[in-house]
Amino acid sequence: MNPILTVEGITAGYGRVTVLHDISMDAGRFGNVGLFGPNGHGKTTLLRAISGLLRPKSGRILFDGQDITGLSARAIVGTGLIHVPQGNRLFPDLSIADCMALGAYSPRARPHEAENREKVIRLFPKLAERWRQRVRTLSGGERQMVSIGTALMSDPRLLILDEPTLGLAPKIKDELCASVMDISRGGVPLIVVEQDIEFLLELTQQLYLVNHGAVATEIKPGESLDHGEIMSMYFGH
């Protein structure tokens, strides 16, 4: 299969600090993609560059054949590339209903608003019970559901999740992982950053170890690794 997303030699950073050094990767050739690696080595920065929150200094990003390098975040949302940022901060004083309406803000997603809302409620029935409640009054797991639900309202053609299970209790985490698997089975390709390697191995078919702002290792299907090998990649030999 052709990759739906191709990142070619992206260099990016904040001010004078360069975080990503000529990083290349692609997604969609084998299925879902997982990114892992130590904190502070550029995973989130890479996602921010892909979704247009951060303008790369050089390199090229292609989404479904279209060059999206340097496009505004809004234009990129318009192509169907949707990014769920880390930390479920979202809109604390808006209700769940408001967040879902915002998710369907782009002209591309608006015609499918009702149908996507149904999908979100089927996936996260808990949200329906708290539909008019403010996001700040929800639990961490529920807030993460709102984040992902909002992204689904944007009618994603590729969904990027940045540490969706960060800080969640084990039981809630398992529920959320199951929901993410459901989304994937529903036909939306995923790029997931995650510290939980077990979850990544289960969910994704292609893995990248991001280290020092570059891809240290790519793991393709058939090159399956066991937990111990990945741990040694993380921590060095």
């Binding site: 979704s51 004083d93 915002l102």
Partner: peptide, 24 residues
């Protein structure tokens, strides 16, 4: 209104507003 909702959203989280496609 939807536009009013967008204004309230920008007030709360700029990055998230970009990521739902608002013209900040």
């Amino acid at each position: 209104t939807r536009l009013g909702l967008a204004l309230r959203a920008v007030a709360q989280n700029e990055d998230a507003s970009h990521l739902v496609g608002l013209n900040v």
